[in-house]
Write a protein that binds this DNA or RNA. Structure first.
Lengths: 345, 345
DNA sequence: AGATTTGGTGAGAGCGCTCCCAACACTACA
DNA sequence: TGTAGTGTTGGGAGCGCTCTCACCAAATCT
């Protein structure tokens, strides 16, 4: 019903002008209460709803925000992290009255071909960019400042607004926790150093070790690419050098690491402790359940939407930067369940 | 650069009128080649790109399609199935020149509140609806036919276009395969019968058993809700009645089922065979790797986009219906690796 | 009483585009 | 020479909306 009614139509039916109807629809003050009622009744009866396109054309605002997930990530897309992030952003968009458009680029060509449509077409009020790489070409282009932009994850350039988890602090927490449990040959299955998250978790981990007088033996370090398979492979390499504990920089990689450990006949936590990062549901259901540094993915997504809307409203010139706190969830894999009473940290 | 150039601006710079520039931009035929070159040069130089909003306002087409994931599903969202589907749909949209808008509803209220904005606002050319329940209230409203609509998954109403996997045939394939492997106490961890997929997989499974002269012992059946946890619980119930094989109606539930089996000290495939459904990457990495009925999720998403675009173009009055073929992937969990040479079915 | 403010209203312009039609040159026909 | 094409171009109207402004009556002031 009522797909193509216009303001004019409603006006005619209510015996007023287009302008008055517009005022009613937009809740402007100077309308006779009686007239307002009459107009609202007609709107109700006809099921009229304003044409968003026409409105946007004149107002210059569409209410649409874009979520861009760049190339190379689609392989990682199986990581539930992205599902959660999308969910958080979608939910926050709904709440804020925005419409969310999703741009998943499969490769660099698609990126190059579609990017102008995304930015220049004028449909998007703003953009959330996620999973940026070091020296991200997309980011380089966007940072020019054509359009309000928020990054999820720390970018490697200045002057851009972003939300990030406390990767550094979280990794340090994992390191000190393992050290406090009495382990000293502590290895690392790292996230790729081509990402800021990878670098931050690496640095935080090393710093945490240092706080307890430990260092990271290069033999006990192998990096993955966030995939389950890469965690499996990396752990196999590290196992050869007999660590007594390992920090795996993501839950999904930890699942893979656990698979390698099991195949090698090593028991977690009896023979080796494990702590991971993310706090996804899967970390709770693994065997054994993973001690993990939980980051608030959904909240970060929501915060990104809020920041973006503030940026769109033009409320700030300085870039917003927000680091979300993380939390160590102690489960079985670190073998410290008994010392738990004192609480982590 | 060039955020707010108009046709008129380009025309002025190229010494022609708005209309001529429009013709060039839209590749119309009757333009002097020389003039066309000149205009194109100006466009190139200025980085002009047409305002999609204005264009849509007059043409009535926006190129935006919506993907709606209704309430109650967000809990299931951790099922990688949805990630894949979204990916497939996104990719197909990009290819087709569409923009994809994502609507994930968290609950019925949000659904009711946002639905009008989705359908009536006039921004969407069409809609893809997924994960419909039996008697889906959303679907009931949409089927009124205000907007081109394609469902992913078989809906329980007539007259709507949809793409579905061959759930029935696939489940039958699982059943006959297990029977052919020599098992006869074959159980089922079913998908919820509040979904057509659940019903179709149940019926197909029973039909497959019947083809081999078997029936489904009610004690050997328990339904889950697609979550890992529900597969775990359902399998625990079934285990008590000692099946020699079980068909689990989704990979994610199968991972949970496997967890229950392991805890019970039962070996797969030596003590019990398992076949699941979906063919997600996780099914390959489980211990043991799962024999599974693979459905082409990405392709189904792509097909949905194609169908929707045909519907939008008004090329057909009859609803499109497409059943995607499935394929039995034989791995270790069914214990038939040796008989594999002959191939399944 | 006359001048000014007020609340309420409608008409016009314009957002950037596409479409239609008229206008123009120029060629080709009778 | 007149008429009908043919190719190319520009202007007008209009998509549905918002916004500014002018208008009118009623209320308030001097």
């Amino acid at each position: 019903m009522a797909e193509n009614l216009t303001l004019e139509d409603i006006g005619r039916l209510a015996g007023v002008s287009r302008s008055t109807v517009s005022r009613v629809v937009n809740d402007k003050s100077n309308v006779n209460p009686e007239v307002r009622e009459r107009v609202l009744a007609v709107i109700e009866r006809t099921g009229y709803s304003p044409n968003v396109l026409a409105r946007s054309l004149v107002s210059g605002r569409t209410g649409v925000i874009g979520l861009v997930i760049p190339s190379r990530v689609h392989a990682l897309f199986e990581d539930p992290y992205f599902s959660r992030l999308i969910q958080g952003i979608s939910s926050a968009s709904n709440r804020a009255g925005n419409t969310l458009s999703l741009f998943i680029f499969q490769n660099e060509e698609e990126e190059a071909a579609l990017y102008p449509r995304v930015v220049t077409s004028g449909v998007l009020d703003g953009l959330i960019l996620t999973a940026t790489r070091m020296a991200d070409p997309l980011l380089a282009r966007m940072a020019v400042g054509e359009i309000p932009l928020v990054i999820v994850g720390r970018p490697d350039v200045e002057g851009v607004s972003y939300v990030d988890a406390d990767n550094r602090g979280g990794a340090a927490l994992a390191a000190t926790h393992l050290a406090d449990c009495g382990y000293h040959r502590i290895g690392l299955v790292g996230a790729p150093v081509s990402t800021t998250a990878g670098i931050d978790r690496l640095n935080g981990f090393v710093e945490g070790l240092a706080l307890r007088g430990l260092t990271l033996d290069p033999d006990l370090r192998a990096d993955g690419d966030f995939s389950e398979r890469s965690g499996y492979v990396a752990m196999q390499r590290i196992l050869a050098h007999q660590p007594d504990a390992v920090f795996v920089a993501s839950d999904t990689m930890a699942i893979g690491a656990l698979r390698a450990v099991r195949e090698a006949g090593v028991d977690v936590p009896d023979d080796m402790a494990l702590v991971s990062f993310d706090g996804l549901p899967s970390s709770e259901r693994s065997v054994p359940p993973l001690t993990t540094v939980k980051q608030p993915v959904t909240d970060a997504g929501a915060r990104a939407v809020e920041m973006l809307n503030e940026l769109i409203a033009g409320e700030a010139k300085d870039p917003y930067i927000e680091i979300m706190p993380v939390e160590l969830i102690v489960r079985q894999s670190c073998g410290s369940a008994r010392q738990l009473a004192a609480g982590p940290q």
